[in-house]
Amino acid sequence: MSAPVVLVLASGRGERFAASGGGGAKLQALLGGVPVLQRTLDAVRASGLAWHLESAPHPGMGDSIAAAVRATRGAAGWLVLPGDLPLVLPETLRAVAAALAGQSVVVPRYRGQRGHPVGFAADCGDALAALAGEHGAAAIVRAHAAAGRVLALEVDDAGIVTDIDTTADLARAEELVRRS
């Protein structure tokens, strides 16, 4: 089986970032001197996995995921990674991809907290391609969890839960970058 494709979602409007006092687009905000989205893409490239950047405007996360899945139809699966997770590690991306073998859904966890990228096997493709609205793929995860087909994968990567939604989030991420 070939590896899944990482879907980097960069279609959001960043309204919470702007409301918190952020100037400009949050994905272009500098983190350690590098734009947030660039850091995310650098990790994806370093993972060695195939990837797709979904940056066209969409009304909600569900619409973004659906468009990205349709653009990569035929993939062995997908890792859904919001573009505002600039500290995710390449080895975490590879671990989620590897864990998809024999699973329908893989949800990474850091110290018990759910994070991204969430991995979906090819059998989830039709449901992902049909998504719409703000809620992303949570309903698909719940349906597979009810059937016992979700793997919770514990990883040692705070980057899976370090998203940049506000200027305070950016400041916390900056501190993590300084300490690393």
Rank of each mutant, 00 (worst) to 15 (best):
A76W: 14
L79R: 14
V80W: 04
V80I: 15
P82I: 00
P82L: 06
G83V: 09
D84Y: 13
D84G: 06
L85M: 15
P86L: 09
L87S: 06
L87D: 14
E91H: 14
T92D: 07
T92R: 00
R94I: 12
R94N: 08
A95P: 05
V96G: 02
A99Q: 01
A99K: 08
A99N: 02
A99P: 02
L100T: 05
L100V: 14
A101K: 15
A101W: 02
Q103T: 10
Q103F: 11
S104P: 10
V105M: 12
V106E: 07
V107M: 06
V107K: 03
R109F: 04
Y110T: 06
R111M: 08
G112R: 01
G112C: 03
Q113A: 14
Q113L: 08
R114Q: 12
R114I: 08
G115E: 01
G115K: 00
P117S: 13
V118K: 07
V118N: 02
F120E: 08
F120G: 12
A122M: 11
A122K: 07
A122L: 06
D123I: 01
G125N: 07
A127C: 00
L128C: 03
L128A: 12
L128Q: 02
A129K: 06
A130Y: 06
A130R: 14
L131T: 11
L131R: 05
L131F: 05
A132M: 01
A132N: 00
G133I: 00
G133E: 07
E134M: 11
E134A: 15
E134G: 13
E134P: 13
H135L: 14
G136M: 00
G136D: 05
A138Q: 14
A138I: 02
A138Y: 00
A139F: 00
I140H: 01
V141F: 01
R142C: 00
A143F: 04
A143C: 07
H144I: 09
H144T: 05
A145R: 15
A146S: 12
A146L: 12
A147Q: 13
A147T: 11
A147R: 15
G148S: 03
G148E: 01
G148H: 01
R149M: 05
V150R: 01
L151V: 03
L153Y: 03
E154H: 14
E154L: 03
V155Q: 08
D156F: 10
D157G: 07
D157S: 07
G159F: 03
G159T: 03
D163P: 11
D163F: 14
D165Y: 14
D165W: 14
D165P: 09
D165I: 11
